[in-house]
Nucleic acid binder design. Structure first.
Lengths: 149, 149
DNA sequence: GGTTGAATGAGAACAGTTCTCATTCTATGT
DNA sequence: ACATAGAATGAGAACTGTTCTCATTCAACC
């Protein structure tokens, strides 16, 4: 099942980040990133393991943790039972999530530049008022996906 | 430790919602809501149980689920290890969260009317493009709280 | 190719959450 | 008020997503 191949530039970028963190660029890690890159939405651990049955569950958890620490993948938290993972935004593109409150599915969506500017303005205002220093933001829309509507 | 008393109008509002869902307004549920109302931020299960040691853990879980189903409390999901709960926004006020990526603390914050309008506009645009029907939104700022900065 | 130590994988262990069931209490009818 | 029915309770068992263990394998460097 290990069929997806990584784009060369993405592969090299990630390999360098791993080396910079004194981490090895193993076959498992490459395969894991390949699965995440091929999906255009955040995947659960189950989906990742199912996509490539040569990956052990414990290895997937461990490597997702390593890759999250060096900023290659990002954990998407929903109110559902499973964590979802996707490639970090600086390897793909800044986006937000549509979370279906019925079936738990998570999809990616891009927001308008105007909205992003509004959020940045708000973060600056909040920093002034509360001393909270915003590193990133999370804007999820929760509702019914087109299949569950 | 059961010291907090609920505002009469809030108490009656919640009692009616429970009756409407064929649920009873028990002492435990009143105490649980009292704890959440007294806190001005989302609490973990541990914090709730610690606030009122007459509440059993299993009862807190069960009642938070019931109260969430009838829209009285809302579960706040973070990347931390524990779920956080707070009174639903229509009993308090629409707000967002400041999540500290260092210590995991969650605080409430209000956003500007302009930002809220931007989000509504974006949700309408997304509905047109993707068929996703937004019920509510979630805007969390992740970064360093004033204590961890 | 040899060497070193990190990565792996199968399953055990762990922890937050949910379930079980005998008992207690709320809500309603008398 | 009192009785009654059945929902709520609570202590702990069970469950499940995630993390840990440790003998083995593999990536990186000589």
């Amino acid at each position: 099942m290990r069929t997806t191949s990584l784009a060369p530039d993405l592969r090299e970028d990630i390999a360098q980040r791993l080396r910079g963190a004194a981490q090895r660029f193993t076959r498992n890690r490459e395969a894991l990133i390949g699965v995440l890159a091929a999906a255009r939405r955040p995947l659960t651990i189950h989906e990742i393991v199912a996509s490539d049955n040569s990956l052990a569950t414990s290895t997937v958890y461990r490597n997702l943790t390593v890759l999250e620490e060096i900023g290659v993948v990002h954990r998407v938290v929903t109110s559902g039972d499973f964590a979802h993972y996707e490639l970090a935004e600086d390897l793909t593109e800044h986006h937000h999530h549509l979370v279906c409150s019925n079936c738990g599915a998570v999809d990616d969506v891009k927001a308008s530049a105007k909205l992003e500017q509004c959020v940045r303005d708000a973060a600056r205002d909040i920093a002034r008022r509360t001393g909270f220093h915003t590193e990133r933001h999370l804007l999820d829309l929760i509702g019914r996906c087109s299949r569950c509507a």
